[in-house]
Design a protein around this nucleic acid. Sequence first.
RNA 1: GGCCCCAUCGUCUAGCGGUUAGGACACCAGCCUCUCACGUUGGGAACACGGGUUCAAUUCCCGUUGGGGUCGCCA
Length: 479
Amino acid sequence: MEKPRLRFAPSPTGYLHIGGVRTALFNWLWARHTGGAFVLRIEDTDQERSTPESKQVILDSLRWLGIDWDEGPEVGGEHGPYEQMQRLSLYAEWAERLIAEKKAYRCYCTKAELDAQREALKKADPKAQFKYPGTCRNRTDKPDLPSVVRFMTDTAGEVVYVDKVFGEVRTPNKELQDFVLVRGDGVPLYNFGAVVDDITMGIGIVARGRDHMINTPPQILIYQAFGAKVPEFAHLPMMLNQAGAKLSKRDGAVGVFEYRDLGYTPGAVLNYLVRFGWSHGDQEVFSKQQLVDVFNWEACGRGDGKFDPKKFASIQHEHLKSKGLTPDDEYVTRVLPFLAARGLANVDRAMVERALYTIRERATTLVDAAEKLDYYFRDEPVMDEKAAAKFLVKEHAENLRAFRDVSADGEWTEAALEARAVAFLAAKSLEMKHIAQPARVALTGRTASPSLYQVMFVLGRDASLARLDRAVARAEKAG
RNA sequence: GGCCCCAUCGUCUAGCGGUUAGGACACCAGCCUCUCACGUUGGGAACACGGGUUCAAUUCCCGUUGGGGUCGCCA
């Protein structure tokens, strides 16, 4: 079987939306699964909205996610250029071919005229559908006026294709019209540019959001007009917000980098997004490599899905919990910037790595992780005064001092610390709960933390004893 | 409104004619426990409705309802 070539073709009109990531991901997964190629193409023909900054954000977002492209901007390839505004002459040439073969024609109707016709029809019959009436279809003159190129759509027949996700889709040609291929200024419209590029770039499978389904029939007509092989199409169900509408900025974070800044990791983002419209039995958690291994179109569903931040967070939690999904080294690298954001720059990498196992099961995001790592990296923990007022008080001072002394008296390992504490408690007929919270507040400045022995071990003897000493002093002074 | 698509717990989903309709998130209760988590046990929670087809429909067909998409010289 021929290795399939797939593509992701975003328009650089803003940040990379997570819906776009899902589309990119499915294409990328299939390319990697099959050993095919993944092409990135920038569709910048909307000159009003496209910006170089957006293009850069999209490239950076994909790189952050680990979705790499075999051909495209900044990596090149034999089918380039990969930005549509650099391919204008190609579109002009291909459009002329269609005109010469009477499969397309120049239309001199102005936008104003068309708008007026649309308005008039709407007034006469609000329910009617405006379609270009074919005014310029048979014009033979060539006035020196601005013109667009329109496709000459045969009103007979129907377009049929078998979607890899939705199955057979049929559209009668009479539902279509003489749509515009190329603007007056020579810049192609989406349907034309995409098809010409997909043909010349050898794209064999086009996977995109279901909102593009409406474009497929006219695109197939263009393929046929060129005598080109029609690719396979796979439309993906929509990702909606919790209200069931299209996901937008109003629904909270939708840009990839917003999630990066929220402390999400690429693997978790991809894991959450892949479950929109795709499943693998009961499995919820996947590594990127597993996804590449098991992804297929057959397991794609058709129903739209609603974005669930809670589930997303839980997937992120799973990824941070598992060393297999987020190895220590990667975890440290990723959490460092978040520690820096808390004023903890230049912390010891090895120390972070040592502390990791104490928070693995507790941290949901990297922001969360940095927060939970905080007290390991300060001379004195940031004290929760409410907690201090409750636990660092006279009534606990004696036990706290005793706990400090017994801890100090021997080997500084988790097991040894625990053994001495247990023996001490037994001798005093005390229970751990009598000293745990004061000690916790002393060591961490807060009422919730990993096991005291773990904290003390990671902190080390000197820092731990210093904190306990200070707490004892404070407790004795307090009421 | 025309055209297109969709329809299993609140959410993501498994199911591909015969199941006590499964899992995950979220929620509730218990256990574990030095706190927080983790883990674990259990619980509530779904086949939109109506017709067919069939010995048998969540599953196949049709309709209804509901939802979504799209109707540009945007992509």
